[in-house]
């Protein structure tokens, strides 16, 4: 049995999702010879630390009832710096202006030679090259599947499963909020504002939806794809972006009459990184509805490969994080 000590930095939807899947998959992990022992958890104000492994069930309950994970005052950054462990699970909020706490957390983890798995795309969309360099310099493993498609595997698909293929193009839907709004606008023949309000009410869209509906979230994911799969050194400023706020229900109807749906499509290839609403034939694999994500990877040997799945959600995103953790430590 290999014991791997873990810290979870950021204990919101995704951080708690990771705790829950570690509880649920304990037996499965033992069967493949792995024990992930969480030795520290931090949220924005508190921490809980136990070198023998914190009791995940009680921390999840405490976070739910009291809003904090513990009584310790160590910050996430201090945990990464001072507590002995192998892998940091970084799930603090995304910040694409400064990189936020996530950027410092990641650099500290690499400085201390720890491996890191994250769902936080901010630092990666801003400082990809610097982070990869820091990880390489210390021999740290760095995995971030969850940053691009949530539960939908894209990076590992392109990098591992399709190894040997040259990837020439990736296009897809990388934002569930936009997909939800456009799908509903078409179903109800209703204006954008109305369906945005509905999405906000149902928790599919944030109070300030700019980041999603203006295509910025998709742009950040494309930057990570471009860097990781196409070996570029792009930042989100290299992406041409058009959002969905100008789409009219009439446009959706006209498109439908011609056999198309309108989707916010992200596209990466050697020559460009672009986010824009596009016409997708109704029977095309990219024409998925609801809040689903989808990606079509164009390869030289295998042709087009399309995957679809949930781009967000607590346990769904945790699934991508768990699979990254397993892939680092499994023999």
């Amino acid at each position: 049995m290999r014991t791997v000590r873990v810290s979870i930095i950021g204990f919101g939807a995704v951080g708690q999702g990771v705790a829950n899947v570690l509880i649920d998959k304990k037996k499965y992990l033992e069967d493949i010879g792995l024990e992930f022992k969480v030795v520290a958890i931090a949220d924005s104000r508190t921490a809980v630390i136990d070198p023998d492994g914190v009791d995940l069930v009680s921390v999840v309950n405490r976070k739910k009832t009291e809003g904090t994970v513990g009584d310790d005052k160590l910050t996430g950054l201090e945990i990464i710096e001072t507590i002995d462990h192998e892998v940091v699970v970084e799930t603090t909020p995304t910040n694409i202006v400064t990189g936020g706490a996530g950027l410092h957390n990641m650099l500290m983890a690499f400085k201390k030679g720890r491996d890191l798995v994250t769902s936080n795309k901010g630092p990666l969309a801003m400082k990809y090259g610097e982070l990869i360099e820091a990880a390489d310099a210390s021999g740290s493993k760095f995995r971030f599947e969850a940053t691009v498609g949530g539960a939908m595997p894209v990076l590992n698909l392109a990098r591992d499963v399709l190894a040997g293929n040259t990837i020439t193009n990736v296009e897809g839907i990388f934002n569930g909020t936009c997909n939800y709004i456009l799908t509903r606008m078409m179903e109800e023949q209703a204006p954008y504002e109305q369906m945005l309000a509905e999405a906000q009410e149902l928790g599919y869209a944030e109070t300030d939806p700019t980041y999603d509906v203006e295509g910025i979230d998709t742009a950040c994911k494309l930057v990570i794809l471009a860097n990781c799969v196409f070996g570029m050194n792009a930042t989100h400023e290299d992406v041409t972006v058009t959002g969905i706020t100008k789409i009219t229900p009439e446009a959706l109807m006209l498109a439908q009459n011609d056999g198309y749906v309108i989707k916010l499509i992200g596209e990466v290839n050697d020559s460009r990184i672009n986010v824009a609403p596009k016409l997708v034939p109704i029977d095309h694999p990219l024409a998925v509805g609801g809040s689903l994500n989808v990606a079509s990877v164009q390869t030289d040997l295998a042709g087009p490969i399309t995957v679809t799945g949930r781009g967000a959600g607590s346990v769904e995103t945790a699934s991508a994080i768990l699979s990254d953790m397993i892939s680092i430590y499994r023999e």
Partner: peptide
């Protein structure tokens, strides 16, 4: 004006 064009694989330009 906003132009919404077909996806790339539809244009066959890959």
């Amino acid at each position: 004006l906003l132009v919404i064009e077909p996806i790339k694989s539809e244009l066959g330009a890959i």
